[in-house]
């Protein structure tokens, strides 16, 4: 039985997963206090993690119906993410593991997102193409085995896809996080009303969303408040379509180039309905985890830990976190 803790951003997460990948509990404590700042404030997030992480662990154990005695491995997100936030999880995990002299598995957050697909779809066998798109990262990877190392085929050169959603939502006067709000508003809009850039002419498999955000900004500036009010849904729908297209075009290219026939998606943006729909139409066998495994969660960290060599007690006591550097990922080629 694996107990996992994830505190890399603003959700305080704990989960219990069995060695065979059965999710016994998956607790996500959303802080929901970053709206008014228009983004995650590291110091506020870290303070909340400290207040919430103990309860999240207790909750995960209780919902799984197990005690610490039944836990054989502690897993924790080591990076990438907000350093101060990661440290709360790592310090907690080290102490829980040391208190029981258990081994500890340090997990790369991005490896976790890919591992979520294995949890959601036990029949999923490499090789496959993985698209991970969230507020922090957007990349395409070729998954040849269960990890932790993957070959990155393309990644964003500027904003992440989730960030593009958040920034667009902000320009349209929606709250944070912007993805779900923008998706709701877009339902009443015409996605062909405006033409936004998808960087389709950019060759290769890298992403770029900075131009898209700027294009929306100009559109919004051109309108007076009455027109903006009338056309908000159209703007949202067209903007969302551009993000979906930017992602899908590259997924399509990658499938062609690699000859892979399976696609797994993950990250918070993978919860987006139109994106799921569009990718399903590409012809590849697609593995779409349920939303609670797409957004940040600890079950995926426990899942990834199954493919990490754990550090025995006391070898992990001096472990530190890392902010950047996708250690699970190696650029292909």
């Amino acid at each position: 039985m694996i107990l996992a803790i994830e505190t890399s951003c603003d959700d305080t997460c704990a989960a219990v997963v069995t060695a065979t990948g059965e999710i016994r509990s998956n607790v996500i404590s959303s802080q929901g206090i970053h709206d008014r700042y228009g983004g995650v404030v590291p110091e506020i997030a870290s303070r909340h993690h400290l207040e919430l992480v103990g309860a999240a662990v207790n909750d995960a154990l209780a919902r799984a119906g197990v005690g610490l005695d039944e836990i054989q491995l502690v897993a924790v997100t080591q990076g990438p993410g907000l350093v101060a936030a990661l440290l709360v999880g790592l310090s907690t995990a080290k102490a829980v593991a040391a208190a029981r002299r258990l081994p500890l598995a340090p997990v790369d957050h991005l490896h976790g997102h890919v591992a979520a697909s294995f949890l959601a779809d036990p029949g999923l066998e490499p090789p496959f193409l993985a698209l991970i798109a969230s507020g922090g990262h957007t990349f395409l990877a070729r998954v040849d085995d269960r990890g932790p190392g993957y070959a990155v085929l393309g990644q964003t050169l500027d904003d992440a896809a989730g960030e593009a959603f958040d920034k667009g939502a902000r320009l349209l006067g929606l709250g944070y996080p912007g993805g779900p709000a923008l998706e709701r508003l877009a339902r009443d809009g015409d996605r062909e009303a405006f033409e936004f850039p998808t960087a389709a002419r950019m060759r290769g498999l890298d992403f770029s969303f900075a131009g898209l955000k700027t294009a929306l900004l100009y559109r919004v500036r051109e309108m007076d408040s009455g027109e903006l009010q009338r056309r908000r849904a159209d703007l949202a729908a067209s903007y969302q379509r551009a993000i979906v297209e930017a992602l899908s075009i590259r997924v399509e290219r990658a499938l062609e180039q690699t000859g892979l026939e399976r696609l797994a998606i993950g990250g918070g943006v993978a919860a987006n309905g139109p994106l799921r729909e569009r990718l399903t139409g590409l012809g590849a066998r697609i593995s779409v985890p349920p939303i609670q495994l797409c957004t940040d969660n600890a079950a995926m960290i426990a899942g990834a830990a199954r493919d990490v060599v754990p550090l025995p007690f006391p070898e992990y006591l001096d472990l530190d976190v890392y902010a950047t550097g996708e250690r699970a990922l190696a650029v292909a080629g």
């Binding site: 890399s8 951003c9 907000l82 957050h109 507020g135 904003d159």
Partner: peptide
């Protein structure tokens, strides 16, 4: 707020 690039999510 954090520079979004530094956040996980």
């Amino acid at each position: 707020p954090a520079a979004a690039a530094a956040t996980a999510g």
